[in-house]
């Protein structure tokens, strides 16, 4: 049964997975803010990040870093393709929110099945980025992969913050988030911002997938659970607040790790989903309150 001496160790690993959920959660928020759409195909990006990197390593023998960067770029491009092929036609026809959800969920299935056909159904993994024994900090083992996850996530969050604050495109996207019609009247190309949002969101998802894969595995069907965890992170943080979503991800990671310690690894998805339902029923506006639209 639960041994309390493991708790610090468990919390440290919860931090790692929490960063990954946070990145996925930010991806949800970026698209939502630009368009009001919740993209249920978000998990496909996470899955593709790991799978494409694996493919580049295995088939073309690329080193890890270029492979990872190429994978992120390819997935970001696929995000734009998804936006053009599925989301844009529905958007132009003023489809209902429900139709949009169903269409992106169907897109998730299509991407999963294509990956299954191309890549096979065997689970795949990536080598750890730095192959050294874990550091011992006060009796807690900290693996180098964890440092990579936390470091890269913080870097991504920082870069995103700078992008939204300093660049013209970032500012335009924030204007869209505040009021799309007013933004359009200011001459901001709202539809191009939507494509940019899908690219950023897909890139973040791919990055999350690449970072987490060395600690577990990836397969064609890992996307949906990741997407749901990211969605939970976004809800806990107050939907539409990218940095709230990151905090929400950290919280979810910690709760989930404690649940694994208490009940066993098989129940981690049930634990995460129960957090979701709890938040939906009791505090749907999240810990920090929903972003005002």
């Amino acid at each position: 049964m639960a041994d309390f001496s493991y708790i610090p160790q468990v919390l440290v690993s919860g931090l790692g997975i929490g960063c990954v959920y946070g990145l996925i959660g930010i991806g949800f928020c970026v698209i939502y803010n630009a368009s009001g759409i919740v993209n249920f195909a978000q998990g496909a990006f996470v899955m593709l990040g790991g799978m494409i990197t694996h493919g580049l390593l295995q088939r073309y023998g690329l080193p890890l870093l270029p492979a990872a960067l190429i994978a992120i770029a390819v997935v970001a491009l696929l995000g734009v393709v998804l936006e053009r092929v599925v989301v844009r036609p529905l958007w132009d026809r003023k489809a209902t929110m429900f139709t949009m959800i169903l269409a992106t969920l169907a897109a998730q299935i299509v991407i999963e099945r294509l990956t299954l056909i191309v890549g096979g159904d065997q689970p795949k993994t990536l080598p750890v980025f730095t192959d050294l024994p874990p550091l011992q900090i006060g009796g807690v083992a900290v693996s180098f992969q964890l440092l990579w996850i936390v470091g890269a996530s913080l870097l991504a969050v920082g870069a995103l913050a700078a992008f939204f604050r300093l660049t013209r495109t970032g500012k335009a996207m924030r204007a869209c988030a505040i009021n799309r019609e007013a933004a359009a009247l200011q001459g901001i190309p709202v539809s191009r911002m939507l494509a940019a949002a899908f690219a950023i969101s897909a890139g973040l998802g791919a990055m999350a997938g690449i970072l987490i894969t060395p600690t577990q595995y990836t397969a064609f069907n890992v996307g949906v659970p990741f997407a749901i965890s990211g969605f939970i992170a976004a809800i806990v943080g107050g939907f539409g607040r990218p940095f709230g979503a990151f905090l929400g991800g950290l919280m979810l990671g910690l709760v989930q790790s404690l649940a694994i310690l208490g009940f066993g690894a098989g129940w981690k998805t049930v634990a995460a989903l129960s957090v979701l339902l709890l938040f939906l029923f009791i505090r749907p506006s999240g810990l920090l309150g929903a972003a005002t639209k």
Binding site: V86, L102, A103, A106, A107, I109, V110, L114, I117
Partner: peptide, 8 residues
Amino acid sequence: LAYGAALI
């Protein structure tokens, strides 16, 4: 794959 594409 066919169902998903058809649905979209």
